[in-house]
């Protein structure tokens, strides 16, 4: 039997909003320690990896490892019925389940909704992502990053990200013209979610498709800050922490000058 009770249903709503436009169907791997999801977009240019540890749940029981093939649009429809402060309970048999139950309990306990969603058979490719030392890490406000990606996508379909010791520059150009947004490394980190910290081992200069970055920033409500990890000729990693009990990480392959 797999059963997980989340005190704040709003978190699951935000997680679905963060993944459903990038990955339509996903394999939710549930084991004794955590629920993990890894999925790629149809073009295999971008990947999302979600991890939510058992400690995020008020109650978590997973007698045997079980993989739930979820259609994220169906799951999102159910979660649209949930209030942010509803308790959400996920339940599934642990012997090749063909469905998953979701129970929503209102905070005052006067309203209980239960849904059964059919699981889908998915044969996606899972990628092995090696632990990597990155040349640059940029930690910044998630709202600021969302704003920059949205603003620059009016000028072009790609953003060039260059990191130096002092700052990180986001550039885009197209027929409208050229736009550069430069963030300077904050000297004093008084309010974490408003400062920019650049941890640089060596300068990087990479180009990425803004279409995918604007899909990644759907995770903005999950965390006040976002961390970008970059290395020359390597996929970009955009990470949103889920409190202390997990993360949503997006990987995006660079566009490389021919």
């Amino acid at each position: 039997m797999f059963e997980a009770k989340l005190q704040q249903g709003g978190l699951l709503k935000k997680i679905l909003e963060s993944v459903k436009d990038l990955v339509v169907d996903g394999l939710w791997d549930c084991d004794g320690a955590a629920i993990t999801l890894q999925g790629m977009d149809s073009s295999h240019v971008a990947l999302v990896e979600m991890l939510l540890r058992a400690e995020a749940f008020e109650h978590y029981r997973c007698d045997r490892n079980v993989t739930l093939g979820m259609n994220h649009n169906h799951l999102s429809k159910i979660l649209k019925c949930a209030n942010n402060d509803d308790i959400v309970i996920l339940k599934a048999a642990d012997q090749n389940p063909d469905s998953c139950s979701l129970i929503l309990e209102s905070k005052n306990g006067e309203k209980t909704s239960d849904f059964v969603v059919s699981l889908v058979r998915i044969d996606t490719d899972q990628l092995g992502i090696p632990e990597t030392e990155y040349s640059a890490h940029v930690k910044m406000s998630s709202g600021e990053f969302q704003r920059i990606c949205r603003d620059l996508s009016q000028f072009g379909d790609a953003v060039q990200i260059t990191c130096s010791k002092q700052d990180v520059k986001f550039s885009s150009s197209g027929e409208t013209g050229k736009a550069n947004i430069t963030l300077t490394h904050s000297a004093t980190v008084d309010k974490e979610e408003e400062s920019v910290t650049v941890d640089l081992k060596e300068p990087v200069d990479l180009t990425f498709a803004l279409r995918f970055l604007n899909l990644f920033t759907k995770a903005t409500p999950i965390s006040d800050t976002v961390t970008l990890s970059l290395s020359q000729e390597a996929p970009l990693v955009v990470e949103y922490k889920i409190g202390d009990s997990g993360h949503i990480r997006y990987f995006l392959a660079p566009k490389i000058q021919e």
């Binding site: 790629m40 073009s43 295999h44 240019v45 971008a46 990947l47 490719d125 899972q126 990628l127 092995g128 992502i129 090696p130 790609a158 180009t207 498709a209 390597a234 996929p235 990987f251 392959a253 660079p254 566009k255 490389i256 000058q257 021919e258």
Partner: peptide, 14 residues
């Protein structure tokens, strides 16, 4: 114009 790669250029199938 820069060419878009895909992730399998960088990561192997698990």
């Amino acid at each position: 114009t820069p060419i878009q790669n895909d992730l399998q250029e960088f990561y192997s199938l698990a």
